[in-house]
Design a protein around this nucleic acid. Structure first.
Lengths: 112, 112
DNA sequence: TGCTCATATTAGAGAGTACGCATGTGGGGG
DNA sequence: CCCCCACATGCGTACTCTCTAATATGAGCA
């Protein structure tokens, strides 16, 4: 009955994990994505928003760059980061929705 | 201008990461979620689908349980796992969509 | 009770990840 | 040309994750 799963789905999910989930698996990176959903920002600005060191921020941005989630553009002395896929915010919001469902579910369980 | 980000958003994203993203950050776990989207399965069945050891499968299921992504029910000797939030599949599909966009974007870049 | 099947848990090795610190790089102004 | 600013990168450390092998739990049956 239960057979091993389709290899192409397996490969695709592998890519999704490597390329995207890994990028989302850190609250600071999610925060960066939200910050960029309002519009482009420089690294310095993102540092401030994250309360993180320049180095640390830059490292997180590097992960997001590799994941293909952000774009960069040089402007004078600064580098401006912007969101590459607006859909990523939809995806995260979907997760937040589930989180909310889960919380209210627990409340119901306690109440019952 | 750029100020530190709202603490409540920060806390919420923290929870999203801890509770959900961590659960998604492994292709085997994504595979489990897809397998369960067709309907409930026992651990043994999931082992077969994943081509993974019983121990390893059980450990991944444990992560998903902690994340609140799956439900369990004992039936005789077996334990049956089922999907707790159908929305999680929507979220993953959203990520796959982004993945697709990204791939076609690269192709265009090469073609151009 | 004792045995067996299905699943869960534990311990330990190896790989990966986040962070601080120090240093490298590249554009702009004196 | 030299210096400074904004940012990127390399290194070491502490932590976290996944996996295998071994062991524990728990339901059903003789």
């Amino acid at each position: 009955m239960a057979t091993s799963v389709n290899q192409s789905l397996r490969d695709e999910l592998d890519e999704v994990v490597v390329g995207l989930c890994k990028g989302l698996n850190d609250s600071k990176r999610l925060l960066v994505l939200y910050a960029l959903s309002d519009g482009p920002h420089t690294v310095g600005e993102l540092c401030t928003m994250l309360d993180a060191s320049q180095s640390n921020t830059s490292q997180h941005l590097s992960v997001l760059r590799t994941a293909g989630l952000v774009d960069t553009e040089r402007k004078g002395n600064s580098v401006i980061y912007s969101l590459r896929h607006l859909k990523i915010i939809d995806a995260i919001d979907k997760l937040r929705e589930i989180m909310t469902d889960e919380v209210s579910r627990k409340h119901r369980a306690v109440g019952a």
